[in-house]
Structures are given as structure tokens and as C-alpha cells.
Design a protein around this nucleic acid. Sequence first.
DNA 1: TACAAAAGTGGAACCGGTTCCACTCCGGAT
DNA 2: ATCCGGAGTGGAACCGGTTCCACTTTTGTA
Lengths: 344, 344
Amino acid sequence: MKKAPTIRDVAATAGVSVSVVSRVLNPDSGPVAPAKRQEVLRVIDELGYRPRAAARELSAGHALTIGLVVTDLSNPFFARLADRIVWEARGHGVQVVLMTTQEDPHLEADSLDTLLDRSVSGVIATPTGRNIEKWARLQDLGVNVVFVDRTIEELADVDVVSIENFDSARRSTEYLIGLGHTRIALVTGPRSTSTGRSRISGYRAAHEDASLAVDPLLIRDVPFRGDSGGDAVGSLLAMSQPPTGLIVANTAQVQSSVRRLVQGGIKIPEELSLIVFDDNPWTELMSPPLSVIRQPLDMLAVHSLELVLGRMQGKLPDGPRLIEVKADFLPRNSCAPLTQTAIH
Amino acid sequence: MKKAPTIRDVAATAGVSVSVVSRVLNPDSGPVAPAKRQEVLRVIDELGYRPRAAARELSAGHALTIGLVVTDLSNPFFARLADRIVWEARGHGVQVVLMTTQEDPHLEADSLDTLLDRSVSGVIATPTGRNIEKWARLQDLGVNVVFVDRTIEELADVDVVSIENFDSARRSTEYLIGLGHTRIALVTGPRSTSTGRSRISGYRAAHEDASLAVDPLLIRDVPFRGDSGGDAVGSLLAMSQPPTGLIVANTAQVQSSVRRLVQGGIKIPEELSLIVFDDNPWTELMSPPLSVIRQPLDMLAVHSLELVLGRMQGKLPDGPRLIEVKADFLPRNSCAPLTQTAIH
DNA sequence: TACAAAAGTGGAACCGGTTCCACTCCGGAT
DNA sequence: ATCCGGAGTGGAACCGGTTCCACTTTTGTA
């Protein structure tokens, strides 16, 4: 176990001062005679020298690192989002420190502290909705924060990248209404989250447009964690007048909801028309293939990274940016027109 | 944008020297009078002081950080593995820097360099199989390396955590043979990887035990990336004497393989008995639910982290450790006994 | 009561980079 | 011939922690 060479080793070997080596390392930080530059580069290569990131960060006051704070990677949505973000970041020479919150504000707070310790220059996060002062403090300390997927209204100064939640919910609801359904259930995220609220609004808007009354019992805002989606589906099916259409708009609960339907032997789309908000290709392989609102993860990842990096380089105008990307509706075979026989 | 307090600010406010504050920060690094300790803690809390990680790392020579190097997070196997590892690591106060290789040795090499710059004290990786000298150098520089899922035979000194590949392949093959199948196809990873080779060996062993000849054309070792699984399935189905059983042992190719079967309208299990190596709960929701070799991700994650942390603390005896965890076979409804009618 | 060992403390060097600044050259303009 | 400005260079301070060591104050024991 030998130890790695330092900038002083390089300087000594090349017969120059550390200042010169540093200037070679960071072009534009000062002049270096072409001959010496050559020699220094040769020595660097010969010794296999690489600058220690910690030293650089200490001196610079901040790290070429961003934090990615998501709920958990078991959710394909976050997994694929993380995948894209890590990929995009590496192209810019930026590393990603990953933290998961399990939707727990305490864990989220811990994560933020840790990222602060690491002097990350940016954070991309799906916030739990709490820790408002903590997020504000982070920004106050010069960390560029971008919220992705969700937002926190109280934090006016944060950049946000999300899909068109209102519109997506509205379109899927309209689609089912167009097929003749009048009792459409909605399983979505908690009302305490921006996504939960927007999707409910979209759902309501579609009903209003069609002059259809909304039965509040058909709207289920359930937690992201656990089997709450499945439970909600169970209770919806047990209603005296069960829904004939169902939209599962809580990505994290798609799986448990669908499991409940499959295990209950519900015939899709004969007994129930189904649309899910999804990021999982498996929906296509089911029988029948499920109609989905496909979330454009690449766009979410690219935009959020662009924002963070742009802020880091100060290339962006002041003031928060809100980017909403369109989510495609992919009708497949899990929806059917409402017929008399569909009512069981 | 104010700036954060330093250890010297704390020392000045508390009326002590930085040494004392440092000793309070790191218990067991020296004595501190109880009264002063109290006061220092009070000031730390009052100022909201947090030690900068970069400064600590520079001084310590290594970071409380580990690198996690996997192919990509779109693969649920790696996503869930990463999830568990991040979770376990945080319990130990260790951060995880995530890098993806896309199975590209160049990207892998880059990642290792970057991790080296960051002075990570450990790396958990699914190696591409190349960069042998680079891995060796990493170890030489004192970085604790643990390979998970795969291994590189040339690197004798590395800890490895994997599932019982040989045994898993053997058992699933035996199961199909037990159902009367004689033409069983195997789609697995490249022969250049340890997993690919072990699974082929297990498959062969099951055939030998049953005194069954192995048709080499039924063994397809395909790359991890791309649609190679689907292509292999297509070509298998097009054989003059197509298989009646199929084992997809390449996790990354399960999805494309199954898609090919579904799109081809193959009846499962009537026309083809199917077993997949899987980490995706969706297999249970398909019709029919697929029989799977379930990979115990928690165990892989826990063990690999235990190894890395153990090495970091020097708590582990010298010499490489090989940990193989058992993977459960979950028979569901995608396999059926071979009957005359099954032969199309 | 004396004296060694242990507890408690602060000064200063160190980790490995970056950056400011003073200094030496040199060529070109006056 | 003189002066000026910029290219090129190295010394040294600095970033914010940790740690070694010398020193003073307790404490315990003979």
C-alpha cells in the first residue's frame, strides 16, 4: 500500500514550484511557459498524479458534487431518474452523492445536514414537504436547490421541474369519461404534496367540464409508502356502488394497487377500466397491457441537472424557474367503453 | 448568503482553543474537562456549527465515503441493490457516491479514477471484467474493494459477495427436467463474466445428472446491454426443434426476453415453460405469474457493506472473503409438465 | 509532605491543494 | 538610453479541520 504523489512531488520532480503545477492544472489561472507546461504534464503522467478532491474543495469552499435526495430507489420512477441524473452529471465532471429519505422528514433533515457538511454545490430533491426552514437555510448558504417532481409552495425561491400534473390527471379522467364512465376512482398521493393536490384538481376539472358530479369517496389520497394503494383499491371495490374506472396516479402505489386487482380476480377492462401513472415498462407486458401516463424521466433529469449546473456557473438569471414537461398518455388495452354488462 | 462558522469561531466564542473543540468533536481523542465540554457543545449548538467534511478528509487522508459502481439503475436489480446499500451505509454515517458504467470498461476506468480523487475508503462494485490493473492499483492505494454479484478471477485478493449462481442455475434446470423437458434453453450473461460461466456450469451439471445431452445451440450467452435477450429468444423460437423450456438467467435481459415472448403470442406455460432470474415484483402480476429465482438483494447489500466497513475499521482478518448467499426458487405458474400437445 | 502519574490545555505543524503578491526578466515604445 | 508593461516564476498565506507535543494543574499514593 503505497501512497499517492502530491502536487509537491510533481513540482520537485519537474523542477518547478507548486504554483506552476497548479497553474498547469487549472488553465486560465495564470501564465506558464510552454516548455515548462510540457514538462509538468509529462511528470504528472509519469507519476500518475491526480489532485486530491478534498484539498481542492477545502480551498474552493465548495465541492464539484451534487446531492440527490429521493424517497427510495425501489420505486422505478426514482431509480430511473437517478440513473439519468448520474449519467448527465458525469458528463459534466460532477459527482452525485445519493441519499434516500423514505418519505421521513427526519431522515430528510439528516440528509440535508450531511450534504451541507460535504459542501455540495447543488441539490436535486424530491422533498417530503417538511423541513421548510432547513431548505431555506441550505439556499441561504449558497447551495443551489432544485425540486423535481414535487414542489413546496412555501419555498418561493426554488427552481422546480415537474410533469404537467394537472393536465395529465385531467386528460386521463377525460378519456375515461369519454368512454362513458361516470364513477371514476382516483388513487393519488397525499394532499399535503403538490402532486397530490394538482392531480386531484385535474381530475375535478375534467368532471366539471363534463358536468359530472364528483363523489369525494372516489378520491383516495394515500401515503407513498406501504401498501396503502392496495388497501384503497380494496375499499373502493367493496363500495356498494363501486367505480367502473380507476386512475392510479400515485406512482409509488401502482404496484400494490395492481396487485390487489390481480389478486382480487378483477377482469380488466371488462369490470374495470384502468389507467396508471407509470415509469415501468412491465405495464406493457401485462394482460392486458395497461394504459399509462408515461412520465418523461429523461426530460425531468436533464432539466433539473441543467438548472443546478447553470446556477452553479451563475449562467442563469435570478429568480426561480418552473419547468413543466408534458407527460404522454399511452392508451393500451386496459380501458373499455362502459356497457351495461360492466356493472356487476 | 452568509457563511458557515468554523472550528475557530467556536473556539473563540467558547473561550477555549481549537484543540479542545476538536477533542469534543472526536471523543476518545483526548481529555476534556466536563464543564468545558458542556460549554463547547452549547456554543456549537448556538452557532449551528458543523465540521466541514473536506477539511476532515484532507487531514485524515481518506473520506467517510464509499463508491458504488454499478452498470445502470434502470435495471431493477441494481436499483434495489443501491437502495439497500445507501440505506445501510447511512446507518453507519457513511455516504455513497454513485457511478454507473453502462458495462463500458472505459467509463468504469474513469469512475475508478474519480473515486480515487475523492479518497473514498471503499468501493462496492459490479465490475465489467476489465481494468484488472486499475482495480489492483485501487487496492494498492488502500481502498477496500468488494465485488458484488460478479467477480474477476484474476483478482485473487478481492472480497466477493454473490448468489449461488451454479446452484441456482442447476436447480431451475433440474426443475424443468423433472417436468419432463429435454430441450431447455438458457439465456445468460456473457461467458466473459463469472456469473455467465457459473450459470452455464450449473445448467450443464443438471443435464449430466439426468444423463441428458446438452445441445450447445440452446445456450445463449448474450450481452447485458441492449435487446440481446429478445433477439436470442427470437432465434431460439425459430429453431427447427425449438425448446419447450426456457431459463432467462441474465437479469438485465429478462425484460426484453419476456417482451419477445408476449409479443410473439407464445402461450405460457402450454407452449413454453419459463423461469427467470429476477428482482422485479412485477413477475408476480403477469398472467401467468412467472416462476423465478429470487435474488436476496438485502443479503447482498448487507454483506457487501459489512465487508467494506469491516475492512475500513480493520476488524476483519486478512485474506479475501467469498460470501455466497442462497437464492430462492419460487415456482409459480409459468412451468408445466411436458406433454405431447406441448410440441408444436 | 513529596513526588510521580494522569488529566487538562493550547500552540503549532500538517494534510494538499489554490491564490495573492512580489520579484525578475524581457521586448517595445518614447 | 530609459522607462513601462506584461509574461513567467516561486514564496507564503490560506482553506478548516486533526494531532503531536510541551506545559500546567490535579490527583493519587507511598
